[in-house]
Design a binder for these strands. Structure first.
Lengths: 338, 338
DNA sequence: ATGAAAGCGCTAACAC
DNA sequence: GTGTTAGCGCTTTCAT
């Protein structure tokens, strides 16, 4: 900046004014400055700028998700990025792998860089470490799951109702032995979806059969193994409810083709409608979720100090075929099997 | 920091030393400082720090992709992020939508924040605007495509050879009327893949039939429409080569089930092996691509000043079923059709 | 309309 | 081992 000032024959202050588009510079001077800027290829150092202007922010937000490679979070990230870009903000991203320790590290790196706001998919760990940055003015919004003990805007979907609808759908087709395959039980969405599963069973007067419930499936492989275990039971399930996309993929991989059991999965997948049978799913809208979270965050950054809001978006049951086998064909007439 | 110094009864400089883990502070003083840090919930302002330490960088890199929501780039991003996290770096991300203007905006916002390095999927636009930041020490690596006129490390795959192998595979199954469906021709990968398509035809002594070549398909919908046009030809193609994942999805959507033509797609898709028939594809490894680009970038950031390298990773043809229909069934015995 | 001085939060370089 | 001074690149404030 000093160099530009020298070349243009003005003071650094005038360069600052021109570069930042502030008024009060004569057109002639401005032109000379702009020429010097182009000649030297000068670009303002925004970090230095943000250091001085304490009242304005850094025009940087951060997004902390479980796993950026997961298409669900990738879509959310893109949606957040678009909202940020519209407003002249940039986005830092980090994946936690659902590890509280990595979450802490990543968020600390972000707050140390003075981000104006944070959109996080919180892990099961505590979030006391957010208190100080929040008092310092950093805004926080939770997405996908609430953070225990953290009173901030939160965007989730109706996991429990969505899961209940899925399982009720299977019950409506005559199934009574419906397995639940879920990820780690310490993940809020998984607990909610399991509760929805139980709700549906209870509404039909059915008790939970522990043999049919598998928690903690962290991978494609584990989901596949759990399915094998279920099918080896004396009275195997005639229908499956898979509680996230990864588990759905694993289960599909372990089944014959076409699948001999009914399946409904939570989360839509590309190509789901091209499978045979097409996959029935409970779908949520990651773009809407990300966009909503971003809008809440920018409202806060813009000065909104109202009480924290919880926004619950709705899931939809997409009936396509895989959940509509009648139970009779596999259980009530065992003689017909194999 | 001054507050911490006051509470601990030391000078700011001592706080700085403790907070940055520098030696030369007595254990007793360090303990008092750390206590004050905890009491006040102090966190160092890394932007201010980076301002002073000009020789060290900002420990921030940026990743600029076409579309973060595309699973291919999402996987790449996750891979880059992991490499960055291992080294204590954070990652800014931006999507360009393949628009040179947005690319410029996004990159300018990143360089203004003094990123140490940039991994970019370059658009077709010129990249002269990168010259100044690069002279200022910002390292740049291109990924997925080279940037015209930009001498930097570049990571790509063997697009041309991969496409040729795919089309040769179709030719090997007796097809002679093979359609090419591609994205915008101004995208380097699409030109390369089209060249590979021509290479394969030429090797079999076949000329290009312009009727069978469709460029510029930007969406699922456009791919579907292009397919309809191809099938309405007097002599429709018996096989299709789709030049990216989005086009493959659009084409699959427009076909009966099971597909009456042979298909090979560029880029793998989740569930591709669960389709009927399972989808034969040319697959590239986004995790390896992202990891390689990140390693090259960090080598540069670490001081490597050797001549720019071009790394070409290999694609693999995954034969699964959709590319192995014999051409005879649809063309040589027209009487059998319908 | 322009510039001089001071300072954002931190640390390099030098004292003691 | 600890503190002082100066200054990173920019902008606020106040003067001219």
């Amino acid at each position: 900046m000093k160099d530009v000032a020298r070349v243009a024959g003005v003071s650094p202050m005038t360069v600052s004014r021109v570069v930042s588009g502030e008024p009060g510079v004569s057109p002639g001077t401005a032109a000379r400055v702009e020429q010097a800027v182009r000649k030297l290829g000068y670009q303002r150092n925004d970090n230095a700028r943000n250091l001085r202007q304490k009242n304005l922010g850094t025009s940087t937000i951060a997004l902390v998700v479980d796993d950026l490679a997961n298409p669900f979070y990738a879509l959310m990230a893109r949606s957040v990025e678009d909202e940020a870009h519209r407003r002249g903000y940039v986005v830092l991203v980090g994946s936690t792998n659902d590890e509280p320790r990595r979450e802490r590290e990543v968020i600390a790196a972000f707050t140390a860089r003075q981000v104006d706001g944070l959109i996080i998919v919180p892990t099961k760990g505590g979030h006391g470490f957010l208190k100080q940055p929040m008092e310092g003015g950093t805004q926080v919004v939770c997405v996908d799951r609430p953070a225990k003990g953290l009173a901030v805007d939160t965007v989730t979907v109706d996991n429990r109702a969505g899961a209940e609808r899925a399982v009720a759908h299977l019950l409506g087709h005559g199934h009574t032995r419906i397995a639940y395959l879920g990820d780690r039980y310490d993940i809020w969405t998984q607990r909610e979806r399991h509760l929805g599963y139980l709700d549906a069973l209870a509404a039909h007067g059915l008790p939970e059969d522990p043999d049919l419930v598998r928690h903690g499936l962290r991978s494609h492989r584990e989901a596949r193994a759990a399915l094998a275990g279920l099918r080896a039971l004396d009275r195997p399930p005639t229908a499956l409810f898979t509680s996230n996309d990864l588990i759905t993929l694993g289960v599909l991989d372990g089944l014959d083709h076409p699948a001999p059991v009914a399946i409904v999965g939570f989360d839509d997948l590309p190509l789901a409608e091209r499978l045979s049978p097409p996959l029935t799913v409970v779908s949520q809208d990651p773009v809407a979720i990300g966009g909503t979270a971003a809008n809440l965050l920018f409202a806060r950054i813009g000065g909104d100090r109202s009480a924290p809001r919880s926004v619950v978006l709705l899931t939809r049951l997409l009936v396509r075929g895989s959940g509509e086998f009648r139970a009779e064909t596999t259980t009530e007439h065992p003689g017909h099997q194999r």
